[in-house]
Simulated scan of single mutants.
Amino acid sequence: MQVTATITHFHLGHTTLGAHLYCLCLSSDPFCPCTTTPETIKHFLLHCPHFHSHHTALRSRLSVLAITTLHLPTLIAVSGVHPSRQPAVLHPTSAFLRKSSQLLRL
């Protein structure tokens, strides 16, 4: 259930990541602890060096599905994915969320 809620939050753009908390004036800065890059959903799912091995695994799982262009709308299956393939695409994204150990904070 937690994964489904997190994916829904990603769809809505409402998370507890630094950039969103900063926009709500709930954080003093928008930056990811890894760098001076804003901690956005895109940064978390695609670029944060803290999760490099998880990004690699995600890319590998998606390449099996013939998805080679990774961008946020594809990862959360809101565009670029046929409705019949959405569960298959969300499965690796869900695995990333679980393995990153970040679900409780998202």
Rank of each mutant, 00 (worst) to 15 (best):
A66D: 15
A57P: 02
Q86M: 11
S60K: 12
R85L: 12
T37E: 08
L75E: 03
T4K: 14
V64W: 12
A57W: 08
T68Q: 12
C23H: 14
R98H: 13
K99N: 15
T93M: 04
L24M: 13
L97G: 00
V3C: 14
S79A: 13
G80V: 06
I41N: 06
R61K: 14
L62S: 05
F51R: 00
S84I: 07
P33L: 05
L12P: 04
F10A: 03
I67H: 07
V64C: 10
L21H: 05
K99E: 15
F44G: 02
A57E: 10
L45N: 02
R59S: 10
Q2A: 12
H47K: 05
L62T: 01
L103R: 00
S63N: 13
L75C: 02
L17W: 09
T16F: 09
R85G: 01
S101F: 09
P73T: 10
A95D: 14
L97F: 03
L12Q: 10
P73L: 08
V64D: 11
V89S: 01
L106Y: 01
H47A: 06
P38I: 04
F96E: 02
A88L: 13
T15L: 04
L21N: 04
H20P: 05
T93C: 02
S63L: 12
H43Y: 06
H50F: 15
C48Q: 00
L104Q: 13
M1L: 11
F96N: 02
T8Y: 14
R85S: 10
S60P: 01
L103A: 00
P38N: 08
T68K: 12
Y22Q: 07
L62Q: 04
V81G: 04
Q102W: 04
H20V: 14
R98F: 12
P30Y: 08
S28C: 10
L70W: 04
Q102E: 08
T35D: 10
H43T: 04
R61E: 15
L46V: 00
C25R: 15
I41Y: 02
I67P: 00
F44D: 03
Q86C: 11
L58E: 04
T35A: 13
V89W: 01
R59D: 05
H52S: 09
L24Q: 14
T6G: 06
I76E: 03
H20E: 13
G13H: 08
P83R: 10
P30F: 08
V78D: 08
L65C: 03
H14C: 02
A19K: 14
H9G: 12
S28F: 08
Q102F: 06
R98M: 07
T93Y: 04
F96Q: 01
F31T: 09
L104A: 13
L62C: 05
A95Q: 15
C48F: 00
T4I: 11
R61Q: 15
P38Y: 07
I7T: 11
Q86L: 09
K99L: 12
I76Y: 03
H20W: 13
V78C: 10
P30C: 09
